[in-house]
Nucleic acid binder design. Sequence first.
DNA 1: CTCCTTTTCATGCAGTTGCATTAAAATAAA
DNA 2: TTTATTTTAATGCAACTGCATGAAAAGGAG
Lengths: 151, 151
Amino acid sequence: MTDETNEDASPITIDAWARLLRSSATVLEQVEAKLKAAGFPPLAWYDILLELKRAEGRQLRPVELERRMLLAQYNVSRLIDRLASAELVEKRKSPEDGRGIVVALTAKGSALLEDMWPVYKSAIQSEFACHLSEDDAATLFRLLGKLLPGK
Amino acid sequence: MTDETNEDASPITIDAWARLLRSSATVLEQVEAKLKAAGFPPLAWYDILLELKRAEGRQLRPVELERRMLLAQYNVSRLIDRLASAELVEKRKSPEDGRGIVVALTAKGSALLEDMWPVYKSAIQSEFACHLSEDDAATLFRLLGKLLPGK
DNA sequence: CTCCTTTTCATGCAGTTGCATTAAAATAAA
DNA sequence: TTTATTTTAATGCAACTGCATGAAAAGGAG
């Protein structure tokens, strides 16, 4: 008797899995290298700053950052510390919650986002986008969405 | 005058990029967690061992591993040390090249590969494959291939 | 209110990674 | 042959990550 709920991944699916790992790692590495070559911090910094910029009042609780970025708690805590040391964000005590803090984007952080974007965008173009048609990108977007929780 | 060779990535392409990062990181993390929960070493170990198993004579030079796995030299060097400490591979002096070594899969390493595969395959199924049809997987494979060098 | 549980954030420690450098052998050049 | 360049691998150091734990406040049960 077969167990349909526990069948194996097919060969083509396994190939797709292997290629997802390989291609994403390769492209990400190249994009990171371009950012670094331009004297910019890693992508993780950009991601956090961007999330703050988009947030209500340009600030968020660390817990909220964890949820949105899918990062571990200690990872967010230390990343925030580094960003704060670089004066890209400011740590404030939360007025509503005595345990918590609020992380706010500074003018310097906002400026860094703007400075990085042209380089980042150009890297996405040269390492990723230039290999794909618009249809390819749309299809990729749709298929990868199936892998995300709640999509 | 426009410069067609340097156009910007389109919005849908940027969305696809963001989703590639997010989805691959998420799924990889879940698969790694399942391996760890089963008491197995990280995926990187599996990848190296598998590469060795597939190689002529079940052995490779570190340089060759770097090329195939797209890993940095020092990274491979240390990974091999850890694998050798666990007796999963054996480091031998290269007979042809006095500088180099040859990394050979041991019986223990081969056994680990076989032990890990069922768990790994099941994780690929539950975290990746189950979200995709066969056609989806084939399309993903094809599109991601465009991102790899020389594909 | 008091006690217990949960949530939020920080941190010590060990393991890992990136960077730069070193050492040694192979290869090429003079 | 002698010297310079390139290739191969290892390693000291600093930065980063994961894990476990701890501290402090919030929330809930009695």
